[in-house]
Design a protein around this nucleic acid. Structure first.
Length: 679
RNA sequence: CGGGGCGUAGCGCAGUCUGGUAGCGCACUUGACUGGGGGUCAAGGGGUCGGAGGUUCGAAUCCUCUCGCCCCGACCA
C-alpha cells in the first residue's frame, strides 16, 4: 500500500452533490482524490453491497444519485468513493487506510491538520497555538497512556473494533449537515420570502445589521448602529411634527409605584400580566414594589394632577421619548420585544371635543408620516372594544399591510376620556368656576415601525429603505486596477461625495435639514462583494466609479430595487443635478408598490365559506366584512380562524357604510370592518 | 405553562452512541497576486467543550442536578 501524500493545503476531502446539480469537487479535493488512485479497488465494507467476491467499485450498487458522485470521483483519478445519497461526504485518508484492511470506513470524519499529523501524513510541526496548548497540558499531571491498549497512537495502526455502523449510517443526515455550511464561502444567505416569511424577516435584520437578539436578556434585542440610525430618523421626523403641533418633550420615571397601576380598573386588568416588578433595591425589600413602566399614563396622570389646577393650564401637551417594558411570552425583533423604545404623547384638555380633536390630529400625523416618509400605506380606523387600549374610552389606529398579508398596528391614538383624570384626581377650575376632571389623550408609536418598514419594502436580496429614512443614500464603489488608478478614482469619488453631501433632500415644510449621506467604500474587497454588502443594507443608490467613467465624465448608477443588470450610465454633472428628483421618484415608487400590494390583496367577503377559504392555514389578506358589533362574535371568529378585527374604518378608509349581515352570525350590521391576521 | 430542539473558537457546526492529544468551515490577522456582481494562494491568532456535583487512572463524551437560549402553541403594541 503506497503511502498517502497529504493534500498540500491540508483541507478535508469533501465531495458534495445534491442530486440536482453536478457534484461539487473542491480543487484541493481533486488533487487528493487524484492521489488516491491506489484504492480504486477497495472492497466495500458492507458485504451485501459487495456482490462479487473480492473487488468491486464502491459506486456500483448505489443509487443513481450516488453513482453520479462516485463517477465524478472516478473521473478525477479512479478513486472509488462511497457516497450516500445524502449529499455530503467526507472521507479521511486514515479511514481509507483502515478500510483497505477491512471492516470499517468512518465517514463524517474530517481530514484536518491534526488528524493528518496523527496519521503521520503531515510533516509540518504543530502550530504555535497547538504547541502552547500542548505544553500547558503537559504541565498538568496526567496519565501516561503510551503503549496501553487505549493509546490512540497504537490504535490508529489497527482496525477499530466495536460495532460497525457503516458509511451510510454514519453519514446520514436528514438536515443539511455541517459540510453544506462549511462549503459556503458566502455570508449567511437570506431565506426567500416564499419559502419562510418569518425566517426571511429575521435574516434581513441580521444581514442588514440592524439588530440582534440580546439572548442574555430574555426577549430583548440590541439595536445596532445601522438599525438605530433608522430609528433616529423616525424620531427626528416625528419629533419635529410633534413640536409643530404644539407639544413639548419631557421625561418621567422608569419606575412606577405599583399602586398607581391599580388605580384605573381596566388599565390594571390589561397590563397586570405583563408587568415586570422591582421588589428589592439597595439590598432591601421595598415597602411598595415598583413596576417598570409598560406605559406612562398613570405616573403622568399623577403629575398632571399636581400641575393642573385651572383651565389656564390647559391644554397640557406633553410627549415623552422613552423605553417601556412589557413581559411578552413570544417575541420578535422590532415587532414585539420585552423592552422597546417608543414615543408616548400625553395631553390633557378642558373639553371632550378638544381631546377628541387631539386624538384625530395625532392619528393624522402618524398616517401622514407612515405614508409620506415611510412609504407605508395605512388604513385609519377605530379599535373594537376588545382591541382598544386598556383604560381608554376609544382607540384609533393605523394598520399597515405586510407583504404576507398580515396586518401591523403601526400606531395608536387614544381618547382616554376622564378615566385617568378621575383615577388620579386631575381636576381644573373652569371659566365658570366649576371643578371638572380633565379630558386626556395618549398616543404612541414604537420601534415596531422599523419592523413595519422592513416588511413593507424589503425583498429577497435584503433590506430596502425609502430615501427619507435611509441612513445612507448613496454608496460609491471605486473601481481600480492599480495605485495610479486608485488615486484618480478616489479623488473623483471624494469630489462627487462633496457635491452630493451639499444637497438637502428634506421634504417641504419640515423644520430640519436632511442632507444626502454618502459613503465611499474603499475597503480592500472585490467590488462584487461590496455590491452585495450595501444591497443587503438597503442603500437606495449605488454609484460605481472606475477609470472608464472618469474618462467619459460619467457615473454608473444602480438603484437598489432595479434588477441586477439595471445600471445607468449618466453624465456626472447631470446626475448630481437630478439626484434629488431621482430619490424622490424612488421614494414614490416604493409607496406606489406598497399601495398596489394593499389594493391587490384587499378583498370584500360576504360568506363564511369564503372567509374560511381566504384565511385557511397561514394565509392572510385585508378583508372587508360585515360584523354584528358584538365581542362574542369577534371572539368566535378569532378562536376559529385567528383573524381579528383590525379596525372599524374611519370615513373614506374603507367601503362606504351600508347595511348588511354579519359574516359569522348573520345578524344585522351597519358597516364593514377590516379583518386580518395580525402581528 | 405544554410540545420540540440546542448549549464545543466571534458565527455556523463535527466529535458524544463506543471515555483516551480540541477539530472543521466561515469570519479575523499578515503578505502577495487580484479588482465593473460574493476572488486566489500562503502563513497565522483564537476554545479550562453552559455551570455544579458524581463515576473513572483519565470525561466534551457516561450518570445526577442546574442554568440559559431558540422554535411551535396559549397572551399581547
Amino acid at each position: 500500500m503506497a503511502a498517502v501524500p497529504a493534500s498540500r493545503s491540508g483541507r478535508r476531502v469533501v465531495l458534495r452533490g445534491d442530486g440536482c446539480h453536478p457534484p461539487v469537487v473542491r480543487r484541493d479535493t481533486e488533487r487528493l482524490v487524484g492521489r488516491l488512485g491506489a484504492w480504486t479497488t477497495l472492497p466495500h465494507p458492507d458485504p451485501s453491497l459487495r456482490a462479487a467476491p473480492g473487488r468491486r467499485r464502491l459506486g456500483q450498487r448505489l443509487s443513481a444519485r450516488a453513482r453520479g458522485l462516485a463517477g465524478a470521483a472516478r473521473r478525477l483519478g479512479g478513486a472509488a468513493v462511497a457516497p450516500r445519497a445524502a449529499l455530503d461526504l467526507r472521507m479521511d485518508v486514515g479511514a481509507l487506510r483502515q478500510h483497505a484492511r477491512g471492516p470499517r470506513i468512518p465517514l463524517g470524519v474530517a481530514l484536518d491538520a491534526g488528524r493528518q499529523r496523527r496519521l503521520g501524513l503531515r510533516g509540518s510541526a504543530p502550530g504555535p497555538a497547538a504547541r502552547r496548548r500542548r505544553a500547558a497540558r503537559a504541565s498538568w499531571p496526567s496519565w501516561d497512556v503510551a503503549g496501553l491498549p487505549w493509546d490512540r497512537r497504537a490504535r490508529s495502526e489497527q482496525p477499530r473494533l466495536g460495532s460497525v455502523a457503516g458509511p451510510f449510517a454514519l453519514a446520514r443526515r436528514d438536515e443539511p449537515g455541517p459540510c453544506s455550511g462549511a462549503m459556503s464561502s458566502k455570508p449567511e444567505k437570506i431565506t426567500p420570502r416564499s419559502e419562510d416569511y418569518p425566517k426571511w424577516y429575521q435574516d434581513v435584520i441580521r444581514e442588514a445589521d440592524l439588530a440582534e437578539p440580546a439572548k442574555v436578556v430574555k426577549g430583548c434585542m440590541v439595536i445596532k448602529p445601522y438599525g438605530f440610525a433608522i430609528w433616529e430618523k423616525i424620531q427626528r421626523g416625528l419629533d419635529s411634527r410633534f413640536k409643530d403641533t404644539g407639544h413639548e418633550n419631557a421625561y418621567f420615571p422608569l419606575l412606577v409605584p405599583q399602586s398607581f397601576i391599580t388605580k384605573e380598573a381596566e388599565h390594571v386588568e390589561g397590563f397586570a400580566p405583563e408587568l415586570a416588578v422591582v421588589t428589592h433595591a439597595g439590598g432591601e425589600k421595598l415597602e411598595e414594589p415598583y413596576v417598570i413602566r409598560p406605559t406612562s399614563e398613570t405616573i403622568i396622570g399623577h403629575f398632571f394632577g399636581k400641575w393642573i389646577s385651572s383651565h389656564r393650564d390647559l391644554p397640557m401637551l406633553i410627549n415623552q421619548w422613552a423605553n417601556v417594558m412589557r413581559w411578552e411570552l413570544r417575541t420578535r425583533m422590532f415587532l414585539r420585544t420585552t423592552e422597546f423604545l417608543w414615543q408616548e404623547g400625553h395631553t390633557a384638555h378642558a373639553t371632550h371635543e378638544e381631546s377628541k380633536e387631539e386624538v384625530r390630529k395625532m392619528l393624522g400625523v402618524y398616517s401622514e408620516f407612515a405614508e409620506g416618509t415611510m412609504a407605508m400605506p395605512v388604513v385609519r380606523g377605530i379599535k373594537t372594544e376588545t382591541e382598544k387600549f386598556a383604560g381608554a374610552a376609544q382607540s384609533l389606529c393605523i394598520e399597515a399591510m405586510m407583504q404576507d398579508g398580515k396586518a401591523l398596528q403601526a400606531g395608536t391614538s387614544h381618547d382616554l376620556g376622564q378615566n385617568f383624570g378621575k383615577a388620579f384626581d386631575v381636576k381644573f377650575q373652569s371659566e365658570s368656576g366649576d371643578l371638572e376632571y380633565v379630558w386626556q389623550t395618549s398616543w404612541g408609536v414604537s420601534t415596531r415601525l422599523v419592523g413595519g418598514l422592513i416588511m413593507t419594502h424589503s425583498d429577497d436580496e435584503g433590506l430596502v429603505l425609502p430615501p427619507a429614512l435611509a441612513p445612507i443614500h448613496a454608496v460609491v464603489i471605486p473601481i481600480y486596477k492599480n495605485d495610479e488608478q486608485k488615486a484618480a478614482v478616489m479623488e473623483a469619488a471624494q469630489r462627487l461625495k462633496k457635491q452630493l453631501c451639499a444637497i438637502d433632500i428634506a421634504p417641504q415644510g419640515v423644520r430640519y435639514r436632511d442632507f444626502i449621506e454618502v459613503r465611499i467604500d474603499d475597503r480592500d474587497m472585490r467590488p462584487g462583494a461590496k455590491f452585495y454588502h450595501w444591497e443587503r443594507r438597503g442603500v437606495p443608490m449605488r454609484i460605481e466609479l472606475g477609470p472608464k467613467d472618469l474618462d467619459k465624465g460619467q457615473v454608473c448608477v444602480k438603484m437598489r430595487t432595479g434588477g441586477t443588470g439595471k445600471k445607468e450610465f449618466l453624465d456626472a454633472g447631470a446626475f448630481v443635478e437630478g439626484v434629488k428628483d431621482r430619490l424622490d421618484a424612488y421614494q414614490a415608487e416604493l409607496l406606489a408598490a406598497a399601495q398596489q400590494r394593499i389594493a391587490d390583496r384587499t378583498v370584500t367577503l360576504d360568506t363564511w365559506d369564503d372567509f374560511i377559504k381566504t384565511f385557511k392555514d397561514d394565509a392572510s389578506t385585508f378583508a372587508w366584512c360585515h360584523w354584528d358589533g358584538t365581542s362574542e362574535t369577534e371572539a368566535a371568529i378569532k378562536a376559529e380562524t385567528k383573524v381579528t378585527i383590525r379596525c372599524i374604518p374611519l370615513p373614506g378608509q374603507g367601503p362606504d357604510a351600508e347595511p348588511g349581515v354579519c359574516i359569522k352570525s348573520g345578524k344585522p350590521s351597519t358597516q364593514r370592518v377590516l379583518m386580518a391576521k395580525a402581528y
